[in-house]
Design a protein around this nucleic acid. Structure first.
Ligand SMILES: [Zn+2]
Ligand SMILES: [Zn+2]
Ligand SMILES: [Zn+2]
Ligand SMILES: [Zn+2]
Lengths: 130, 130
DNA sequence: ATTTAAATTGTTATAATATAACACTATGTA
DNA sequence: TACATAGTGTTATATTATAACAATTTAAAT
């Protein structure tokens, strides 16, 4: 049913880096980290990031211009994402809540418009920073 | 109760431009449009934008790097925002739904973390583009 | 096996978005 | 007045992201 997706060389290198990182990574920090592996130009990074986002393997934290590996099951291929962001230490966690995603999936606005995709970013203080 | 906030000269010029615009504006497009009014440098624009966001007079659409005037009552000073974005025509509307904002305001994650702020962006097709 | 299309890569240059640092000016208030 | 805070103007620079083009690899299709 789910066609197994094989990542290309650059995609795999960049996914591995993001996946093993304990914090979201920015594009140019990724670039710096993969230069030893032969990826030399921003475009090579951005292309891989685009593809990985499209596949739902990573998500972009829009308010931070940073990328994090999906902590769920690729989030229905990246169509429904929610994050918790600590405004002090910048710890970012992907929220996995069935009730939240159900609520948002079914949300209709005043015009009856239904949405195919959403991104939600919550801000506050994490346990440690409170 | 709400201290009436007087905008500074640059803040007022930039707010007026955004407020009368029918679509979200990007920083450098704002810069271009206010050069005849004597605002010449990016920093002057970004400083005014920062302040206007802080006051809740405008919001930043994170996924678009664009700014839109608040269509509600300054959204409790910018702490709770939700937008509808058409992926074809890029029409962007601020969503005002009591039930949505109540749901999100009260949302607690698994750790019992409560949030002081959120930003939600919905994507889909608007009436016209469907 | 050969052809073809689609995806990926490599590379240079450049566009678009945003902030640092510093000197100065206006405004409010004690 | 004197003091603090907020806002301004300016130059330079940092950060994020895409355009354009040529070559290569991969996966089907004949
Ligand atoms: Zn995910
Ligand atoms: Zn924290
Ligand atoms: Zn608003
Ligand atoms: Zn539309």
């Amino acid at each position: 049913m789910n066609k197994m997706q094989t990542l290309s060389k650059n995609q795999q290198i960049i996914f591995d880096l993001i996946d093993k990182s304990s914090e979201p990574l920015k594009a140019y920090s990724i670039l710096f980290n993969v230069q030893k592996k032969g990826i030399k130009a921003p475009l090579q990074v951005y292309r891989a990031l685009d593809k990985l986002v499209e596949l739902g393997k990573i998500h972009k934290i829009e308010s931070r211009n940073a990328f994090i590996a999906c902590q769920n099951s690729s989030c229905q291929v990246s169509k429904a994402t929610a994050f918790s962001i600590c405004e002090i230490c910048e710890k970012i966690t992907e929220i996995s809540s069935a009730s939240l995603s159900k609520y948002l999936r079914n949300f209709k606005d005043k015009d009856g418009m239904k949405y195919s995709k959403y991104n939600l970013e919550f801000f506050g203080l994490c346990k440690k920073c409170r």
